[in-house]
Amino acid sequence: MTAAPGTDWRPALAPAVVRRHDPVRDADLLLLPERVGVLTGSAAAVVGLCDGTRGVDDIVDDLAERFPGAPVATDVPPFLERLRKEGWLR
């Protein structure tokens, strides 16, 4: 299988990013200086797989198994790309 454009990387949290659960808002957060990202819906599950060892395809496969029927293959790669552009992932 050939990797589609933009999927040949192994997403990991950018070095300065802190991920934490926020008990006050019952939300998963990503923190950078001056910025807060609130992980809503399945975003927390997606980001949870971004540990630098899995490629984008591995993440898609893993999620497809856990969420059968969800549009994982079409939605997850651009979502990861967006998080990379915004500086949360590298």
Partner: peptide, 9 residues
């Protein structure tokens, strides 16, 4: 107190 209130930065 700030952490308990919801402050994250």
């Amino acid at each position: 107190q700030a952490g308990e209130l919801g402050v994250v930065h």
